Amino acid sequence: MTRFGYTLMTEQAGPKQLVRDAAAAEQAGFDLLVSSDHYSPWLSAQGHAPYAWTVLGAVAQVTERVELMTYVTCPTIRYHPAIVAQKAATLGLLSDNRFTLGLGAGENLNEHVVGGGWPSVRVRQEMLAEAIEIIGGLFDGEHPFDYTGQHFRVESGRLWDLPEQRVPVAAAVSGERSIARFAPMTDHLVAVEPEAELVQGWAKARSDAGKPQSRTIGQIPVCWGPDEDACVQTAHEQFRWFGGGWAVNADLPTTRGFAGATQFVRPEDVAESIPCGPDVSKIVEAVKPFWEAGFSDVALVQVGGDSQSEFLRVAESEILPALREASSS
């Protein structure tokens, strides 16, 4: 059965609200809470970017059942992978083994801030592979852990506080090359396009490597609200960057750049890709391609920071029951 998650969108809410929303999402019945990990919002209109790891630590203390996940953290430029391993192990302990470390090659928007440059896709994937090796070595409990790679070094590393259950690692992939590299190295798949080829390619790559089958975790934006026109306007104001595609979204460095790149995107264009308004059946139809493609988990992003409470109320009474009924039929 498909599991459904709720996204703690750090770009559109402050830390205290995110913690409150997380507790409410667990109460509403979501299976999974995923958090973005950004230094900057995509557009200035979103208006927020608190530190995801502090938020998740607090979330771990106000929830009991729901799983937690970064969606996703880039462990290569803004963070050193040894520090990401330490953060993930700590969160695994705080959450009583409910945490999954979602990793990806990152976006210029968040990584350029530390002045480390923005490498090519090939180099970013090389860096991510090294980072995963480092994180895995530290999760193994080796000490002292030493590593010398092309991009990273670790000297006498050790995680002094490790959860009894190893923190699972999920990797964001977008095509055959990234699948071939990361499927054997990690535990689960992350992807934002409902493409069956990704799921099938991932499953084959893991089988060929002698690895067990895994979860495949997708994400989709929605904008539920009682007024469809208002929802379309909110989605356009805050989420029109979404349609740019991974290649564009990964490379633009600033909110001004995203504003310029999306200046000719119309509200009706956004409404074609994001279900807007009170009609729950539109949300079901938008999410349906994910479970048809074989995704095991789908996390919803409710667009609009000030609409979360009402969305979560309706999610409990209408949206989640409709999704579960449709995905199990």
Rank of each mutant, 00 (worst) to 15 (best):
T7L: 15
T7G: 04
M9W: 06
T10D: 05
E11M: 10
E11P: 08
G14L: 09
K16D: 15
Q17L: 15
R20C: 11
R20Q: 15
E26M: 08
E26Y: 08
E26A: 06
G29N: 10
D31R: 01
L32C: 01
L43F: 08
L43E: 06
S44D: 15
G47E: 02
H48N: 10
P50Y: 11
Y51I: 03
A60H: 03
R65Q: 13
V66C: 10
L68P: 08
T70G: 10
T70K: 11
V72A: 12
C74V: 10
Y79E: 09
P81C: 05
P81Q: 00
A85S: 08
L93K: 03
L94T: 01
L94W: 07
S95I: 01
N97S: 14
F99K: 00
L101E: 04
L109G: 06
N110K: 13
W118F: 14
P119M: 07
V123D: 11
M127K: 14
A129R: 12
I135C: 12
G137E: 02
L138V: 05
L138G: 00
E142K: 09
H143V: 09
D146G: 14
Y147F: 15
V154P: 02
E155Y: 14
S156F: 09
S156A: 14
G157T: 00
G157A: 05
R166M: 04
V169Q: 10
A172Y: 09
G175L: 07
R177N: 07
T186E: 06
H188F: 08
L198M: 10
W202Q: 01
W202T: 03
A205Q: 05
S207T: 12
D208V: 06
P212D: 01
P212H: 02
T216P: 04
I217H: 11
G218R: 05
Q219Y: 10
W224Y: 12
D229V: 06
H236A: 03
F239E: 00
G244M: 14
W246L: 13
A247C: 01
A250I: 02
D251N: 15
P253C: 08
G257D: 15
G260Q: 15
A261E: 14
F264R: 15
D279A: 11
V280D: 00
V280K: 00
S281T: 13
K282V: 00
I283S: 01
K288G: 01
P289T: 09
W291N: 03
G304I: 03
S309C: 09
F311L: 10
F311H: 06
E316M: 13
E316A: 15
S317F: 05
E325I: 04
